[in-house]
Nucleic acid binder design. Structure first.
Lengths: 154, 154
DNA sequence: AGACGGTCGTTGCTTGTGCAACCACTTGGC
DNA sequence: GCCAAGTGGTTGCACAAGCAACGACCGTCT
């Protein structure tokens, strides 16, 4: 039962993201990953995040994120601000153009979610959301333990 | 509501697959993608699939799949058999070593699903599975239409 | 039979990602 | 104050994936 649910999760994720990415590409808009970066920074309390805070929220390696930020910055959508309290680091903030991009992308993204996900899950959205949030939270809670276990083996 | 469920899907998928991949890597086993290929071929009616049939089941480009199959074949886990009825194509079949690999991977994979997914969704597994299957089925049903629509714009 | 459009699978090229190594900097102990 | 250990972010390298183009082949129509 749970195994089938897991396979359904894999299938639904793969197909739905594929379709939504296609919709964004068709509208000549950036990928979901860029949207996630912009939105994650923008919705944060101070509307700015440290590099590692962003890496924690996204499931991605430091180096991959570093280069991705290079590209998004090159597109003018975010800016790197030097961080006064730690000269190693920097704050990432969404530029005006980045906010404009969020406004342009959201209608397309939302339409994709509605068409390829929301109408299908229908009344079960509440249950599905709750269940999947438990999965994510538990995985995140375990993350440090896993890292610790991994380092302990060395 | 559905939007939160969508974000939960993204988060749960990213974190859970990340953990399970880590478990497989720790056991010096191939990735989930390889398992999916082996299992998809093995469970098919004739225990063999054409290249394009496999591409349809997986969400992946033809070229990406072609190279992936190169690697899996190089590892000795599948074999390419010439197809009598169509000399362009070939049948893909799981070798004895490939079946052995499936048997070695499954306990690790299953433990990962249980630990990072099954116990968290718990009694909601049925509802979640049903809902996500609807999403996948609908996306797949739309796939040809999308391709057709895309080609129609050219 | 011969030609033509469409399909199957591979290859060159470009892009994106992770790992390991690295520098710059901070933090804690002496 | 200073040194060692640890952290934040970037870079070199290897590898995986998609797009476009290609060669081989199928099916159909004349």
């Amino acid at each position: 039962m749970a195994i089938e649910a897991w396979r359904a999760l894999l299938g639904a994720h793969a197909t739905a993201t594929d379709r939504i990415e296609a919709m964004l590409a068709e509208a000549s808009l950036p990928s979901l990953a860029w949207y996630d970066v912009l939105w994650t920074i923008y919705r944060s309390p101070d509307k700015q995040l440290r590099h590692f805070e962003l890496a924690d929220e996204m499931v991605m390696s430091r180096s991959g994120l570093s280069r991705m930020i290079d590209r998004i910055q090159a597109a003018g959508l975010i800016e790197r601000r030097s961080c006064p309290s730690d000269r190693r680091g920097q704050h990432l903030a969404v530029t005006e153009a980045g906010q404009e991009m969020l406004r342009k992308m959201w209608p397309v993204y939302e339409a994709g979610i509605t068409e390829h996900f929301a109408t299908l899950v229908g009344d079960d959205a509440g249950v599905v959301g709750e269940a999947l949030r438990r999965v994510e939270d538990a995985c995140r809670a375990r993350a440090p333990k896993c890292a610790e276990a991994a380092s302990a083996t060395h």
